[in-house]
Design a protein around this nucleic acid. Structure first.
Ligand SMILES: [Mn+2]
Ligand SMILES: [Mn+2]
Ligand SMILES: [Zn+2]
Ligand SMILES: [Zn+2]
Lengths: 141, 141
DNA sequence: TCCTACGATAGACAGAGTCTAAGTCAAGAA
DNA sequence: TTCTTGACTTAGACTCTGTCTATCGTAGGA
């Protein structure tokens, strides 16, 4: 995602300090297993650019999602999380107790598990799989 | 439905008009592909029992979920849906445009697709699969 | 019938996200 | 370089979903 800003400029984005900071927060360090909420993104962005507003963070995140640069993940009934790891398809493993999230890469094609007879005429294009359980910390004796 | 009320009574539930109406709304007609939001449940319940409160609907739904009689489904970032089809395991197929939901029963065991090396020490106990696409109505034209 | 603990109610409150009106500024034009 | 303008940002009001609390009511047992 390091050339993210390049791609965005190529898409006609006006490059503002706010957008740059949001992109940097999401891409920070290249750690691909980051799943921040909008408010967490806002907090980190505000550390670099104190006057940035919540609305701008939401707007920018929404644009990044539309552009396919970021994936929206709703694991629980709480705040959505924003996932910069949009270029390698993956699923999520979530701790039922503490909410920790890990990227996982299951084998097989989950779409293939849904026979035509179970598709009811839908044009199925996407599958989202969430594995739930206890993380080592929460399960630990 | 009468089964449900029986089971609830057996569990020590005090049988009030409000709880009865909520249970009837969820179980209404035995159509198992009902996925109502809390507010939809409230609206239908209020048609039979006008003074029923939102809080009671939320409380009752929460109790039914705890008892395993109803499943909470969060397909989008919007309101949770309450699924009375709790006794036959299934997954969901959701229309990306209109939000229509269908129950589906994929083959294979989705848990088996997650190799041990991808479990990161988690005790994985549950998988939730959401298929997305366009329903016949939304795809046509 | 009476008692009372459990349940229902209204409405305040909270979290997450959207929207609007007004001000600001990135970037192309001259 | 300066000008211009429409895209962008902002504060804060607003919506939607859900939770909580204080008070009132009643199901069901004695
Ligand atoms: Mn991820
Ligand atoms: Mn269902
Ligand atoms: Zn945990
Ligand atoms: Zn549809």
């Amino acid at each position: 995602m390091s050339d993210l800003l390049e791609r965005l400029r190529g898409r006609g984005w006006r490059l503002t300090a706010q957008r740059r900071v949001v992109a940097e927060v999401l891409d920070g360090g290249g750690a691909s297993h980051v799943h921040l909420t909008a408010d967490e993104v806002h907090a980190r962005a505000a550390a670099r650019l104190p006057e940035i507003s919540r609305a701008t963070v939401y707007n920018t995140l929404g644009e990044l999602v539309s552009l396919g640069e970021v994936i929206e993940v709703a694991t629980d009934g709480r705040a959505k999380r924003y996932d910069p790891n949009a270029h390698r398809p993956h699923q999520h493993l979530v701790c039922s107790r503490c909410g920790a999230i890990r990227d996982v890469h299951p084998g097989g094609d989950p779409l293939a598990d849904l026979p035509a007879a179970e598709r009811f005429g839908f044009t199925v294009s996407e599958v989202e799989v969430t594995y739930r359980g206890l993380c080592p910390n929460c399960a630990g004796a």
